[in-house]
Design a protein around this nucleic acid. Sequence first.
DNA 1: CATGAATGAGACTTCATTCAT
DNA 2: AATGAATGAAGTCTCATTCAT
Lengths: 224, 224, 224, 224
Amino acid sequence: MDDIMVRRRVPASAKAEQRIRDILRVAREVFAEMGYERTTTTEIAQRLGISEATVFTYFHGKRELCVRVIEDWYDEIIAAVEQGMPRDQSTKAQLEFFVRTHLRLFLVLSEGRAKGQGLGEVFVPLQRRYTAPLMDMLARARDSGEIRSDLPLSLLRSSIFGPMEHILWDAIARQRPVDIERTAKDIVALLWPALLPPDLEVAALREFYGEVGAALRRVGERGE
Amino acid sequence: MDDIMVRRRVPASAKAEQRIRDILRVAREVFAEMGYERTTTTEIAQRLGISEATVFTYFHGKRELCVRVIEDWYDEIIAAVEQGMPRDQSTKAQLEFFVRTHLRLFLVLSEGRAKGQGLGEVFVPLQRRYTAPLMDMLARARDSGEIRSDLPLSLLRSSIFGPMEHILWDAIARQRPVDIERTAKDIVALLWPALLPPDLEVAALREFYGEVGAALRRVGERGE
Amino acid sequence: MDDIMVRRRVPASAKAEQRIRDILRVAREVFAEMGYERTTTTEIAQRLGISEATVFTYFHGKRELCVRVIEDWYDEIIAAVEQGMPRDQSTKAQLEFFVRTHLRLFLVLSEGRAKGQGLGEVFVPLQRRYTAPLMDMLARARDSGEIRSDLPLSLLRSSIFGPMEHILWDAIARQRPVDIERTAKDIVALLWPALLPPDLEVAALREFYGEVGAALRRVGERGE
Amino acid sequence: MDDIMVRRRVPASAKAEQRIRDILRVAREVFAEMGYERTTTTEIAQRLGISEATVFTYFHGKRELCVRVIEDWYDEIIAAVEQGMPRDQSTKAQLEFFVRTHLRLFLVLSEGRAKGQGLGEVFVPLQRRYTAPLMDMLARARDSGEIRSDLPLSLLRSSIFGPMEHILWDAIARQRPVDIERTAKDIVALLWPALLPPDLEVAALREFYGEVGAALRRVGERGE
DNA sequence: CATGAATGAGACTTCATTCAT
DNA sequence: AATGAATGAAGTCTCATTCAT
């Protein structure tokens, strides 16, 4: 755990640990702001008011530093989810908690997903671990018939993470803050019906209603 | 906006236009494969078998080239949507068409979204234009009561784009192909219930169904 | 042959080839003066009055540049030996030629021998090719009984290369010039007795001398 | 020469001297393994389990440390030669002893020889001191007519050191162990005849024999 | 005395971009 | 119009060395 990212000396001292924390904190900021490629070690060092060499004293290189930042972030969010998940409440409440937590802690690091021989390898296992609680929850709810079983879980997963990240990115691009509580509630309110098992009769009725409505409008448009 | 591409585009001979198209085509490939930062002008020139300098004869620089690539891509997808959108079919069918088109033409250019003094500014208006047909459709459907009105349209939008992009990224990260037809169908099947108004009571639906049925029968009786 | 060390463009033009030759020439000087590790690409560029980047335009890196320098040097000396070797003269004369050529063209590049994950791999095959003419000569002379067969050829080889290099190094360390003709003669004069078969008895030699002499006289008598 | 090692060596407590010995021992290992440039002070400190700073407490720097290592090594080998040299035995036996000792204690430090503003200056006097016993021996043997006097002693010296080092380097490059006893015997067996005064008659006969043989072979080759 | 911590100086390398031909 | 050639600027990383504690 220690010897992975430490350069030579093994700085287990309080000072060293503080340094490591500082570097990680600032690095997270910079990586989040700029993305992996556009982040420079110079920038990180400058923001901390230390020499670039110091950064390399504690981390083997830019890549490893980024991996650590990501790992730490995943650890944080995983811990938050595992600890706080209200397992005794309804699936819907659990989903809401999950979304809220993700929105609160989401780290924008597009390159992670990015192709090239980038950090891809690092992400996959973390992603799996991270997604596990949600997937478990969904699987259980599906087995108990609480949510629909006619679509692959991976699709459900994408339909939960996808909107969250889309919203956050949009907010970042527009430089607007996100009202996390409200957004979490809205997302779940929106998606919840999508997750329920399609009650056949109701679903059929709904569809019928929709189609007739549309047909009506089309006739209306032409008529006028 | 005006000073872009002024350089020597004045003559715009047939040959030159072909060059520009070639460069744009290959540049799109490379940007999509590698992302903005990891793309090199060398790579683009090499794939075309031309000199790097030639690229700079037609474009002011890497950045401008990328902006053009993105603009062209947006133009394409916007045109595809505007032309192909089956306006006379149901909202659901239109949504499906939209999703299918997006999945087919989606350009993965994570950095585009990226912040920093990147391409962010370029994306916002394009994104707006691109989203317009979908938003219009949603707005109309909401006004007619076909889809829910209790949540902001922007959320609905995110809940459509988000999953699509999440799925595509996942596929890219895992290097797996995407079955576009099937995925489009699944996404819509999943999300459709989420878009419907939540407050339509089954009773109301049944009543409506009954009335429409009766009306239909009456028409039938007369016609024959 | 070309694409190995060329960076992007394939500069087969006269100008480019001149550049490559210039860089190789200067690089050889610097590597010889400083050794691999202490040589800097900056130094090479400065001596040529060009930018460092230009060096990297023509060679993939310091390492490859050094490999090229060494290969070229080996090629040169191998060609010189293969072309100039007086095969119709005595073994001793051939040896002298070999020593003279080596002394004239020897490149001091200690690190080549050096361990570490340096250039070692590059040297072995070249060394083998380079040594081949000498080893062949020695093997033939040994098979014909002209030189001793009681010691491994590799030892004989070391006893020829060793002194040469020792002398050259000494001269370099003391910054004194080497009188190549004289040194070559001396080395062979010294080593020749060491190479002869030790067991040829003087008696046998005398007898042989006598017989040959008699034979000669007989020929002479007939010829006149 | 005087200002070297003055730093804090004044007290020279027992503990400190042990430290110095330890550092020198390990430094010798590392320098021998990696060469001067590729050796890092970090590596030396790590192998000793001490801090890098401690190394600098006892030595002014890497360079001085290396000089000390070399000096010590020379001292050792000089002492070994001076003490062990079997002065009452034959010159040949003494030579053998010398070779064996050198082979056993040889320190591979190519860079030492290296030029540049390297350690060159350090080597010359040490080399002189080190070579002294051998040179004396050779001088005496030459004066007594035991070995040849027609060639400069420096050449004889190179013809002894050269092969030894060539063999050792080869062994290191190929990562093979050296059978020291056997190699020492072989080297002397090979070189001894080279050192003997060329008995004029025998030498002339040998040469004659060699040339006639070669001539014969050449005729034979053409004839067939 | 020993060392934890920090760093200045410099190495190699990449790449978008310019310009004369 | 096309390009061969060159490079400035910048980026990542290494390492001997210093100094306060």
